[in-house]
Every structure is written in structure tokens, then in C-alpha cells.
Simulated assay, not measured.
Amino acid sequence: MREVKLFIVGLGNVGGGLVKLMKSLEKEIERKYSTKLKVVGAVDIEGSAFSKEGLDLDEILKTKNKGSIKNYPKFGSAKNALEQIEENWKNFDVLVEVSTTNLETAQPALDHIRNSLEKGKHVVTSNKGPIALHYDSLIKLAKKNGVILGFEACVAGVIPVIRILRGYLALDKVQGINAIVNGTCNFILGKMSEGISFEKALKEAQEKGYAEADPALDVTGMDSAAKLVILNNIVSSRQISLKDVKINGIENLSGDARNTKLIASLRNGDAKVQPEKVQEGSFFASVNGVLNAIEIETEIAGPLKFSGRGAGGRETAYAVLADILKIAAENRI
């Protein structure tokens, strides 16, 4: 039974969801992967907790529910993520970076990831900022240090599109991608198609936990654009950035929204995100609620279509967990 020691940065919807999944799936993970996952460190915006012997999952959730992980009995402190990485890098195997996304500077997640890769630590992240803004340099840094950078959770929730593009389709030529990669917008547009105003649809999305208190990244199309940049930089030798994407969000939409979807598309180097009317009865027309969907056109495999849950802490946490277990299964610990 191998042991994998995790240092989790971020205890919001995704980080908390990961801890809950690890707890509920513990026996299955041990049986199917011959692996025991141990959380040795955890960080939130106010502080951290670290123990080489491992933190109790129930106590992590209980402490965080009351406020900050810095109040974890005996092992809590005001140290931030970088301080803990510097002090305890020899005591964990995988950095799990699931903090809040910053699409302007990618910080502080970028420093957490770089620092860990440089120290020969595997990294798994759901944070789009570093991957969208610094994909090429981070991939090279991971390769240089002989470690894995897993970022399946950055795009399309539980749909394993990154694993498919980097693995199964690595030798095929991707000719185009069309995708619905923001579950929040898809939910809002679905409600608007029923005649509900954008404002009321957004409020409902927030009440259900599908939209953040500040929904700007979602409704302006920036979140979808960041995901499109990541997909492009996986499949194309021509690396692009956010400034190369033509972006139109849904925040100014009004009127008839039936069969309207926020589509992220990539073809011949042209990257764009915009609301589009889709044909009734088509693949994208059937993608409702917070589902995501991706259509990949390739030279050999032809058109491939995938759909699945794309919004929610539990779903994203599952993608994070899958990356962690992939590292363990490849005997990279």
C-alpha cells in the first residue's frame, strides 16, 4: 500500500469537496489503487495547518466550517502557503493548488506551483490562471524536474478532455474545437430561454451555488476564454493568450434566448467566445443546466463529442482526485 502525502492550498468549494471525496471514497481508493491518501497540510486565506503525520479529514472540515484552518488544534498557524512549502517541501508528495483563480497575474497560485515544481514536487491544480497564462513555461519546468503537472480540473469539470487531448489524441491533428465550458452561463441562458430576465436567472444561479457572489469572470466570457486558451495551447504549436481571444459574454443579452449557448470555438488559429444560436435538436441544444459539452474535430478520429457536469465543487474535486490517483498509479511517488 503506497502512501501519497498531499498539501492542499485552498479550502473553498473545490478544496473542501476534495476532502469530502477522499473521506467518502477512502476504502475504494485503497482497494482499486492500493493507495492511501494522506493530507499533511492545508491552507486557506488566513493561515494553515501542517503535520508530517497527517491531518484528520473530519477535523479539517470542522475547523474550516468554524472559520479558518489556522485554528486547527495543535498544528494550526498563521503561515501562508509559500512559507509552508519552503519549510515542509520534503514532507509532502503532491501540491494540490485549488485556490481562487486570478486571470490577470495568476498569483499567488503561480508562485505556489513554480516553487513546488522547482523542488521536485508533483502538482495538481484546478486553478486556470497559471495554466492559461504560463502553460508552456510550467510544462517545461515540470519536465525539467521529472514531475507531473496535472490540470484536468481546469477545463470542463468531470469531462476528461485534457487527458484525451494530451494522451489518446496526441498523434492526431485537431482541426477544430467547439465547446460549452461554463456551466454558470449555460444555466443562466437556460433560464433566460424560459423568459426569465438575466438578473433573476443570475440570482437563482447564485442561490444554487452555481455562480459566485462576483460572477464577472463567468458572465463576461473570460472564464470560457481562459479554458479555450488552455485547450489551444495543448493542441497547437502556436501558443495564444487571452488577448488573442475574441470575447463576448452574456451580461448584455436580452430578448429571446431560446437555443442560445455561450460557445467557445477554435479553428485555424481563430479563437472566440460568444453567444450563438444553435440548431434545435443538435448536440449543443441538448446540453442544459450546468452541463458542459465539447466537440473535437480531428483528422483521424473524426468528430468526437463529450458532455458532463461542468459546474460545482464536487465535480471539479473529482477531476482533481483523478489526477492525483493517476500520479499514484504511474508509480511516480
Rank of each mutant, 00 (worst) to 15 (best):
His134Ser: 05
His134Val: 08
His134Leu: 00
Tyr135Met: 01
Tyr135Pro: 00
Tyr135Cys: 00
Asp136Lys: 14
Asp136Glu: 15
Ser137Arg: 05
Leu138Arg: 03
Leu138Ala: 08
Leu138Gly: 14
Leu138Tyr: 07
Leu138Met: 06
Leu138Asn: 08
Ile139Ser: 11
Ile139Lys: 11
Ile139Glu: 11
Ile139Phe: 06
Ile139Thr: 13
Ile139Cys: 10
Lys140Ile: 05
Lys140Val: 03
Lys140Asn: 14
Lys140Asp: 11
Leu141Thr: 06
Leu141Val: 12
Leu141Gln: 09
Leu141Tyr: 08
Ala142Tyr: 03
Ala142Cys: 09
Lys143Pro: 06
Lys143Asn: 14
Lys144Asp: 13
Lys144Asn: 08
Lys144Ser: 13
Asn145Ile: 08
Asn145Tyr: 13
Asn145Thr: 08
Asn145Gln: 07
Asn145Arg: 05
Gly146Ala: 15
Gly146Arg: 01
Gly146Asn: 08
Val147His: 04
Val147Gln: 06
Val147Ala: 08
Ile148Gln: 09
Ile148His: 10
Ile148Asn: 12
Ile148Ala: 15
Ile148Cys: 09
Leu149Glu: 08
Leu149Gln: 04
Gly150Cys: 13
Gly150Gln: 04
Gly150Asp: 11
Phe151Gly: 12
Phe151Asp: 00
Phe151Thr: 01
Phe151Met: 08
Glu152Trp: 01
Glu152Gly: 11
Ala153Cys: 10
Ala153His: 04
Ala153Gln: 04
Ala153Leu: 01
Cys154Gln: 03
Cys154Ser: 02
Val155Ile: 09
Val155Leu: 10
Val155Met: 02
Val155Tyr: 00
Ala156His: 01
Ala156Ile: 02
Ala156Val: 14
Gly157Ala: 02
Gly157His: 00
Gly157Ser: 07
Gly157Pro: 03
Gly157Val: 06
Gly157Phe: 03
Val158Glu: 01
Ile159Tyr: 08
Ile159Gly: 02
Ile159Ser: 01
Ile159Cys: 00
Pro160Ser: 11
Pro160Thr: 10
Pro160Met: 14
Val161Phe: 02
Val161Arg: 01
Ile162Ser: 07
Ile162Cys: 09
Ile162Tyr: 09
Arg163Val: 00
Arg163Cys: 05
Arg163Asn: 13
Arg163Ser: 11
Arg163Trp: 13
Arg163Ala: 03
Arg163Tyr: 10
Ile164Lys: 02
Ile164Met: 12
Ile164Phe: 11
Ile164Asn: 05
Ile164Gly: 05
Ile164Glu: 01
Leu165Met: 14
Leu165Tyr: 05
Arg166Phe: 08
Arg166Asp: 15
Gly167Asp: 05
Gly167Pro: 10
Gly167Glu: 10
Tyr168Gln: 06
Tyr168Asp: 13
Tyr168Pro: 00
Tyr168Asn: 00
Tyr168Thr: 12
Tyr168Met: 08
Leu169His: 07
Leu169Thr: 03
Leu169Glu: 05
Ala170Leu: 13
Ala170Lys: 13
Ala170Glu: 07
